[in-house]
Design a protein around this nucleic acid. Structure first.
Length: 833
RNA sequence: GCCGGAGUGGUGAAACUGGUAUACACACCAGACUUAAAAUCUGGAGAUCGCAAGGUCGUGCGGGUUCAAAUCCCGCCUCCGGUACCA
């Protein structure tokens, strides 16, 4: 069969059809084979794929094809994270329904992905906006409700005025909305929450099990986000009032040094404390000022510490002394109890505050060096708080104790009078899942005047998002105005009732989609036990670092919550995580606003899917950033053409042999080629297995191709089998990366089966042993000469030859040879002076 | 401040357990082919001195360990990413 000119569009179309017809990427549960689940984060159907997607999905495709060649039963699905705000905005703009826009985008993006030749089992495709999908998460929600994992609460929430909805803490980045970057406001609202904090400890502890599979920095980010700190909750009596204030502290050992107390402006006690203060107006102005300050300014590092005295005192439970209560701008209601016992001598913030307002500073922890000299840290000359360990002083019965043991002793003492207990505090907050948006899954709840909150009965699921809704020009959800949606019967008492009109946070959908892929068409349950027992968990997950906390934390939580509600046995969803680097252009992130985007479609049109994939995998290792280069993709295309021409030029000489099958080379050229061939298999396998370093895999194959070019004249008549074997190896090794062109060349070699059924090549150790090796000679560590010698020549012989080399003699002349180090088959180092 | 990562040619990047620093590619230069160009094939190339053989320097900076360091240790500098009044 004549190969002709390399025209990617023809080759790619041809093989995509063959793969589709042969259904070679469709997989089923098969306990007789080891499984491998490779998953890339599913995209939001924005309409067009971008280079970030191409990179993400190309990496995943190589992994999938490679593992499949290694004999695994590979699950490699794709779908759509299809709920979200852009669809609503587009619907407003085009006066259409978000669903229409979304489904149209999905079909366009699906086509683009298919043009790239990815090995997905397309039968498993899911779109999270379909009732058949979100039905199950409505069911999960009802189960969570039963279990007490879902609850409703009225509290200040992050409100994005642009998106017209609340946001979870994780979705507020530097005080800005993660999606639209508007300034987030605070707003009191009644909302639905999931008790992710119930799992805080487990989420933290299980990070240790991901130690080898996840990038260090993602683990660290999650640990910081959960923010576990161990300390104590202590109770302070308010003087002359029947009230107490609880504080959380990690330093109960310093309590005797607590000379005042700071509470947050939002603290519920503030109103009571300041009710009859003389300067009530001043206090109110101070509070209003803090509360109106936006989050960025309030959180700024250089924000001046400010406070105001409430006029009230509380009693230090250890010293019995009265200490003033302040409202302070740096105390956050969202952490701990919203009140802090202030120990200026041993906390930097309290120190600064005390200096500013001339409050007492009292040393209670003494540095050991001073203590040994019989001295005590002098408060009046201190320039910063002393936060290191030490010995207790000015602390009554606890004097002389080491501060670490004093922590426990003091809390135990307070516990006797019910004023203190050891406690753990987390930075993590419960997950607010209510969204005041239309394009999301409806929360299956009914409000009845008589029965209160009533869950939608399970047999009424899915609770379908109305298809006839008209999106509003002001961006607000149309649901609350839709009588036919809102009005319903109470399932309990049958009276008229109202439906919840909020929808789920869209992170709800992405928190379990990888489970649904295991059994995506199941109509009676979210997924069968059989399917998830076999496929879960995901062996290799691939996606962007931007989800280090959000999606990855929610998914981990969901997995555990679904385990505890009996849906699945898995505890951690993703065994291994690869976060691919960004795609840059001209040193910056590709973005529409910068106008430096490169459209994957135009690259495919011009150079083909294979060249696009090749470049993106060659230019940088997957975890690193990738600088886009127009010349680079040109070069990738040139390499594929070069490989093509190699086969084309030898067409009548080549045979349909297996990779690495030339076993008996007679001439030097064949020996040399055989060595290179086996060495390439060794390197390629090693580099894929070592963190998927596809860039060096490609470099190795390029070297092999260069070698074949150099030897082809010598071998084409003398040993065509050696050439055929080497070409077969190159094509096979490259096939996960550039599958279409490799299939075509494989066929041109005379093979009748496809590469999708071809095993990954193996190499023969014996082929890597050379008759002669090159040795390096150093004199005092500097390279002076090289020479050829028989493999494994005896040390003394090697030494003799090395010492006799001309340039070596020149450098050792007149010197005494002290030592000669011989590393077999590698190097000789002569130490002389 | 803290946590993570990275500093290697003109550029993207290699270097497996310490053992020829710069593989592979891009860009560049030269030769072959061509009337010419493109494409292709072959070759060159870290800097510097030298006609050459060869020498000297060279992996952010300064030390150290070692026969031998891009690689290990100590101390810094710069850049990127994340994160922070978290009590």
């Amino acid at each position: 069969m004549a190969l002709g000119k390399y025209t990617p569009e023809e080759v790619e179309k041809k093989w995509q059809e063959i793969w589709k017809d042969s259904r070679c990427f469709e997989v089923e549960v098969d306990p007789s084979k080891p499984k491998y689940y490779v998953l890339e984060m599913f995209p939001y159907p924005s309409g067009k794929i971008h280079m970030g997607h191409v990179r993400n999905y190309s990496i995943g495709d190589v992994v999938a094809r490679f593992k499949s060649m290694q004999g695994y039963n590979v699950l490699h699905p794709m779908g759509w994270d299809a709920f979200g705000l852009p669809a609503e905005n587009a619907a407003i703009k085009n006066k259409t329904h978000p669903a229409k826009w979304t489904y149209q985008n999905i079909s366009e993006m699906r086509e683009q992905l298919q043009r790239l030749g990815y090995s997905y089992d397309w039968r498993r495709e899911i779109a999270s906006c379909r009732p058949e999908y979100y039905k199950w998460e409505q069911k999960f929600f009802l189960k969570f409700l039963e279990k007490g994992l879902a609850y409703r609460k009225d509290s200040p929430q992050n409100w994005c005025p642009d998106c017209n909805t609340v946001l979870a803490n994780e979705q507020v980045v530097d005080g800005l909305c993660w999606r639209c970057e508007s300034e987030v406001e605070q707003k009191d609202m009644e909302q639905w929450f999931l008790r992710i904090t119930d799992y805080a400890d487990e989420l933290l502890k299980d990070l240790d099990t991901l130690d080898t599979g996840w990038p260090e920095r993602v683990l660290t980010m999650q640990r910081n986000w959960i923010g576990r700190s161990y300390g104590a909750e202590l109770t302070f009596q308010v003087k002359d009032m029947d009230e107490t204030i609880k504080v959380f502290t990690t330093r109960p050992d310093t309590i005797s040094g607590a000379t005042f107390m700071s509470v947050a402006a939002e603290h519920p006690m503030v109103e009571t404390l300041t009710k009859d203060a003389d300067n009530k107006t001043e206090i109110n102005a101070f509070i209003t000022n803090i509360r109106n300050m936006d989050r960025i300014k309030r959180g700024a590092e250089d924000l001046e510490k400010e406070g105001i005295f409430t006029g009230k005192y509380c009693i230090n439970p250890i010293t019995g002394l009265e200490i003033p209560i302040f409202i302070a701008n740096f105390v956050l209601m969202g952490y701990g109890t919203g009140a802090v016992m202030a120990v200026p001598a041993h906390d930097q913030r309290d120190f600064e505050f005390a200096k500013k307002y001339k409050l007492e500073i009292k040393t209670v922890i003494n540095p050991v060096e001073l203590h040994d000299k019989g001295e005590i840290l002098n408060e009046s000359t201190m320039e910063a708080a002393y936060t290191a360990p030490g010995i207790l002083v000015n602390s009554g019965d606890f004097n002389g104790m080491e501060n670490e043991s004093a922590k426990k002793a003091i809390v135990e003492h307070l516990d006797k009078s019910g004023l203190g207990t050891m406690s753990v505090n987390y930075r993590l907050r419960d997950w607010n899942i209510s969204r005041q948006r239309f394009w999301g899954a409806p929360i299956p709840i009914i409000y009845c005047d008589d029965c209160g909150i009533v869950p939608v009965p399970e047999d009424q699921l899915p609770l379908i998002l109305p298809e006839n809704a008209q999106v509003r020009a002001d961006g607000k959800s149309p649901l609350p105005q839709m009588e036919e949606f809102v009005n319903c019967e109470c399932p309990k008492c049958g009276k008229a009732a109202r439906r919840e009109t909020d929808t789920f946070d869209t992170f709800f959908e992405s928190s379990w989609y990888y489970m649904r892929y295991c059994d995506p068409r199941n109509e009676t349950e979210p997924f069968s036990q059989e399917a998830t027992d076999y496929w879960m968990n995901v062996d290799q997950y691939i996606g962007g670092i931007e989800h280090a906390i959000l999606h990855l934390l929610y998914s981990r939580f969901f997995t555990k919550a679904l385990r505890d509600t009996g849906f699945i046995k898995t505890t951690e969803p993703f065994a291994n995580l690869l976060t691919q680097g960004m795609v840059l252009k001209d040193g910056g992130k590709m973005s529409k606003s910068k106008g430096n985007t490169v459209d994957p479609n135009s690259m495919i049109n011009r150079y083909g899917a294979d060249a696009t994939r090749l470049f993106i995998l060659f230019a940088s290792p997957p975890v690193k950033e990738l600088e886009w280069s127009d010349q680079g993709i040109e070069g990738a295309f040139r390499f594929l053409s070069r490989l093509w021409r190699l086969v084309e030029g030898l067409e009548d000489k080549l045979q349909a042999v297996q990779p690495a099958s030339s076993n008996d080379p007679q001439i030097d050229a064949a020996k040399q080629l055989r060595f290179k061939e086996h060495d390439t298999v060794r390197r390629a396998t090693r580099d894929i297995e070592n963190e998927f370093q596809f860039n060096t895999v490609i470099a190795a194959v390029m070297e092999l191709v260069n070698e074949i070019y150099g030897l082809r004249e010598a071998l084409k008549d003398a040993d065509p089998k050696a050439l055929s074997s080497a070409i077969a190896t190159a094509v096979t090794l490259l096939s996960p990366i550039t599958p279409h062109v490799c299939e075509e060349l494989w066929q041109a070699l005379g093979h009748t089966t496809t590469l999708t059924k071809q095993p990954w090549p193996t190499y023969d150790e014996a082929a890597l042993i050379k008759d002669e090796v090159t040795l390096i000679v150093q004199v005092n560590g500097k390279m002076r000469a090289k020479f050829q010698m028989a493999n494994n020549a005896p040390k003394d012989e090697v030494e003799k030859v090395a010492l006799g080399l001309e340039n070596v003699m020149a450098h050792t002349d007149g010197k005494t040879i002290r030592k000669v180090i011989v590393i077999p088959n590698k190097l000789v180092n002569i130490v002389a002076n």
